[in-house]
Design a protein around this nucleic acid. Structure first.
Lengths: 185, 185
DNA sequence: TACAATTTTCAGAAATTTCTGAAAGTTAAG
DNA sequence: CTTAACTTTCAGAAATTTCTGAAAATTGTA
């Protein structure tokens, strides 16, 4: 498997960005390669194309499977496992978005829920809890919103994202229109 | 400066989550502490409370300043620098969101713009570029949307986030209502 | 200017994460 | 069952990131 210099640059960049997006360099590279490569790719091909060890590829694929970003395929008469990116670019983005929501918000929500169960023992603690409650409320809202967005149909999501500042205008409508959205069943 | 065990837990957790949110452990801890602490805090207090070196505090504060998450204050008659979190919880969240957009999307958009300028040399490259274009279009849209959201007034943002699945209903309205949002000036 | 208080820097140490490759494990075919 | 093809595991090595603390730089005051 030969990568064009374009593809090479794309793959290397995803490797560099990987850590900001929640995975390590080689996982980022593997994801990039599978994303632009139209044909299913096997582990040896990945190791060769990315110049990394076979073991590393195995671990990386496990990670990508945990993220639900790859799909396993088989070629008739070949015992190797072949992989492709799991779905369209939009599907992939949605999956990354969902996984990140889980990893970046859920643990904190869980902890804050715990901490907020305790009664504050003094003024100092009461003040800290107030802040924690604010953090909790915001993250909870964000979590629900992220959840809503990732459940939207692509058509609606696209419409929403293209609204731009028109969003405010649309929000003004809410509740002002006879039979408007807020009242719809 | 003494931290209650509640505050301690909060701070340690932010330290652990730090790497997922884009900063390292001690920066995460410093951010958490400044967020729940009502009074301005100086570098020595941070070092003592978090049990880290003075040098590390200095680097961490530099990082938090780069993120625009802290504000510098001075106490009359005291030459030390004192810090507080920069604004309300909402302000902070918005800032983190904006910074992350910059760090996680902009470099990739820049690279893809570059790569897409080149004419594909063969079929293979043409196919790869098609995918890259898709990735670009999606990230560009996401970037603009993130931008729109972070410019929204808190009131509107809150309204939007609370809509839940009502979003689809509201989107249906778009363009169907006389003088609706899409046509408003 | 001189000095003391404070902050910043940065080389090397420590901690953490990632990677390799050999060995162990699994699976399909004969 | 046996074997060969393939995948996974994981201990230790390598790479990277973070942290420390002493020295250098900066700053306000007298």
């Amino acid at each position: 498997m030969k990568l064009s210099s374009q593809a090479q640059a794309f793959v290397l960049h995803f490797g560099e960005m990987g850590s900001r997006w929640g995975f390590n360099r080689t996982v980022g590279q593997m994801f990039a390669l599978l994303t632009i490569h139209p044909e299913p790719v096997n582990a040896d091909q990945l190791a060769q194309a990315l110049k990394i060890s076979r073991g590393n590829v195995s671990m990386g694929l496990k990670e990508l499977q945990a993220w639900r970003l790859v799909e396993l395929h088989h070629q008739p008469g070949d015992r190797k496992d072949y992989f492709t990116a799991a779905g369209s670019i939009w599907d992939l983005a949605r999956t990354v978005f969902e996984e990140r929501r889980k990893r970046e918000l859920d643990p904190t929500l869980t902890l804050l829920r715990q901490l907020l169960l305790n009664d504050p023992q003094d003024e100092q603690e009461a003040q800290a809890q107030e802040k924690m409650q604010e953090v909790y409320d915001l993250l909870e809202l964000l979590d629900q919103f992220a959840n809503t967005l990732s459940r939207l149909e692509q058509k609606d999501l696209l419409k929403l994202m293209k609204l731009g500042s028109g969003i405010s205008k649309l929000l003004e409508l809410k509740g002002k229109v006879k039979g408007g959205a807020s009242r719809a069943k």
